[in-house]
Nucleic acid binder design. Structure first.
Lengths: 146, 146
DNA sequence: TCTAATGTCTCTAGCAACTATAGCTTCAAG
DNA sequence: CTTGAAGCTATAGTTGCTAGAGACATTAGA
């Protein structure tokens, strides 16, 4: 059995995060030592590593919740898992496209800046006037990051 | 003078967001009508459009606060504005690189999934075992999105 | 065996950048 | 003059954690 600290170290997850995962029910309630400290089995480590890995790939905790419940039922069809992953891929692709446009615009801004006074600053000028932009990085749908 | 609704419509910002910007001091307190409703000048519209545009480009509100105070002092050097923009560009570039790696991994996962049972599902399997990954999308530094 | 250091416990509050709700007041059109 | 849309304040919720306070548990060394 592992303490919460060891578990965290092995899975690469901070201790408060583990407690948080338990609190929101994505990890089951841990067994306790005589002195009320959490003790974890190897199974718990696997589950936490799964969560960690999925978070690294940008899945939301809600998606991970679904993936975990799928992985708990090995005889079901994997269509649902597949569609969660495809949705995540689509999400990542759309963020990539958007970021690429932002990058282009920022580069344009920075390159054009001659380094004089604010009054002549291209950065400030472009920010103040959207029509000076090349691309249409309009209406942001803001999502959680990575 | 514009009502808060008209201002929002013209700048592409929702009404509660405008009130929020005022609350955190990134927009000055608006003048009020006899009946205590906010009224905005053309100058306020410009300022809000600036904020909106900068948000679209992924700048944080803190960065925008700095950019605004720079733009209020047109005789200063534009070095500070330039460096804020460059920092944002670097940020965007690093997120781009990271997202590209995620995309590759997700594609690998999705493509390999044969569509059978969960027990054979490549998606679930890869999530459960980091060593099945090609790239090193390890340790996420999570930032605010776009 | 005692003690000191470290780890763990619960609980609460905070972060960014909003969004939503409730219950009220004001404004503008007909 | 009425009615309905738009505005007001205040508070709480969102996501995925992170930080702090103050108390208890565990463990290594003297």
């Amino acid at each position: 059995m592992l303490t919460i600290g060891k578990l965290g170290a092995q899975a690469g997850v901070k201790v408060p995060t583990i407690r948080y995962y338990e609190q929101i029910g994505i990890l089951p309630e841990a067994e306790r030592s005589a002195g009320n400290q959490r003790r974890y089995s190897r199974k718990a480590l696997e589950r936490l590593a799964f969560i960690r890995h999925a978070r690294d790939l940008g899945f939301t905790l809600e998606a991970i919740r679904d993936l975990l419940s799928l992985s708990d039922n090995p005889d079901q069809s994997c269509a649902a898992a597949d569609s969660i992953a495809r949705a995540q891929l689509a999400e990542v692709e759309s963020r990539l496209a958007r970021l690429a446009a932002l990058k282009a615009e920022l580069e344009r801004m920075v390159v054009q800046c001659a380094g004089g006074r604010i009054a002549d600053c291209r950065v400030i000028e472009v920010l103040g006037d959207h029509s000076l932009c090349a691309t249409d990085h309009h209406h942001t749908l803001n999502q959680t990051a990575q």
